[in-house]
């Protein structure tokens, strides 16, 4: 039903693309149209590192209808390395291993199964605990 809506977010969902301000260097995510008073080229597309840390999290056992079959699942507010905070599911982890401040990294996963006749599989970003620290 929301095929076009998902397609419009392909840069955000698949590439993890945000925007960088061409003079200040500020990063924003998700990308958005120019705000009033901004020029169309003030913000340029940029692919983010996909690194961040957990600001807070929950494990949800009562979900909205499209996600009911996936419960329980973990959700987090994630502070990205570039500054912005986002909301995303956590994956490849157990609840007892999660903690505030935990380093996480972005992975592309199925966000949810199709719930109506369009059969659309919605893929996008989730985050998992960083598997190994760079040494």
């Amino acid at each position: 039903m929301n095929l076009a809506k998902h397609w419009r977010q392909k840069g955000t969902y698949y590439l993890f693309q945000g925007q960088r301000h061409k003079t200040t260097g500020e990063i924003r995510f998700p990308a958005r149209p120019p705000m009033l008073g901004e020029r169309a080229d003030d913000w340029l597309p940029t692919v983010l590192s996909g690194k961040g840390e957990i600001y807070s999290f929950t494990v949800l056992r009562q979900a909205a209808t499209e996600f009911e079959s996936a419960t329980p699942f973990a959700l987090a507010l994630i502070r990205l390395a570039e500054g912005p905070m986002i909301t995303a599911q956590l994956t490849d982890c157990a609840e007892e291993d999660l903690f505030i401040g935990q380093p996480v990294e972005m992975v592309t996963r199925l966000l949810r199964r199709p719930t109506d006749k369009d059969g659309v599989l919605v893929y996008g970003y989730k985050f998992r605990p960083v598997l190994s620290s760079p040494s």
Binding site: F57, T58, A64, F73
Partner: peptide, 15 residues
């Protein structure tokens, strides 16, 4: 960027 990722209001208050 919120509901499409499975968030609910309860989940937000929980976080």
């Amino acid at each position: 960027f919120e509901a499409e990722h499975g968030i609910t209001l309860t989940a937000q208050w929980a976080m």
